[in-house]
Amino acid sequence: MVFRVGQGDASLTTLLSRQSASLRAELTQRTTELTTGLHKDIGAAVGGDFSALAGLEHSLARLKGYTANTAEATLTADAMQTALGVMSDGAADLGANILRSIGQASAATVSTIAIEAGRAFETTVAALNTRVSERALFSGVNAGISPLPDADTILTALETATAGAASVSDVKTAIAGWFAAPAGYDALYAGGPARASVPVSAGDTADLSITALDPAIKETLQTLATAALLDRGLLAGQHEARAQLLKSAGEDLVSGNESRSQMMARLGTTQARIAAAQARNGAEKTALELTRAGIVSADPYETATRLEDLQSRLESLYLVTSRVSRLSLAEYL
């Protein structure tokens, strides 16, 4: 080992410049952290294990997807509920009206009620054909096409089916047969099979599978059509039979209230599930974002304190550098 008296000038220069470089590197890091609020080196912040953070991010991405799904499912379910409400209200009103006035029914009253029934049938078909943002509500997977043709087409088909029926029971059988046969109502239905359930939150789906083939809808349409056909000259001239048919239709409409309510309650449950999922997703999103912030956020107080400390250290270093470089024997000789 060489015995040293002096301390090489280069040693001090290197020392000072390295210290100032490391201080400035830390300064850059802390400044970035203070401005972005995030750790500059996320890898170091999570200790090299990204599984928690990546899992959080992915859950948040899925929640974004669920947000879109719940919003759209809400829109569809609300529109379906409205359409079913139109149908149900129309049927209930007509039923009550028939039963109220059928006691002293004159031929004119029967005809007036039949006209009303025609309108109610039309409104119901139009309601079932409702489209929300270019999507037919009751068409199942064939969302692009309205499920039913217009009311006139259906009634015309029914007229053909009931042609020749002379008695009330013949007419009722013919109409019931047309609605039950695959070649009848089902053949006019342009929609497809029921839609698949849409996921609305982790493990929960929204079932919006009601189509125009639903028994409650078919039953209502059948009864409304029976009354409406009277307006198109069914059993013309047979006042007794016409009044009897209208009365039976009125009774069916009132008794059908229960199955319609059940269908609407089923949809209502789905709506409630969607709303619950929406609330749950919102809460989960907030919780996940808080957790994520806990992982990736740099504590602003700590960062600010460090910056303050760095500043004073850097200032001291500059002071030392300037003092030391003036400390030379050459200055005094």
Binding site: L38, I42, G43, F50, L53, A54, L56, E57, H58, L60, A61, R62, K64, G65, Y66, A68, N69, E72, A73, E134, R135, A143, G144, V198, P199, V296
Partner: peptide, 28 residues
Amino acid sequence: GDPLDAGSLSARVAALDTALMEAASRPE
């Protein structure tokens, strides 16, 4: 890429998942 970065592979996986879910919600 770290998962917070939109261009990272894991963010791209998440984006595909979201896009598939959104498409399933309105397949038409």
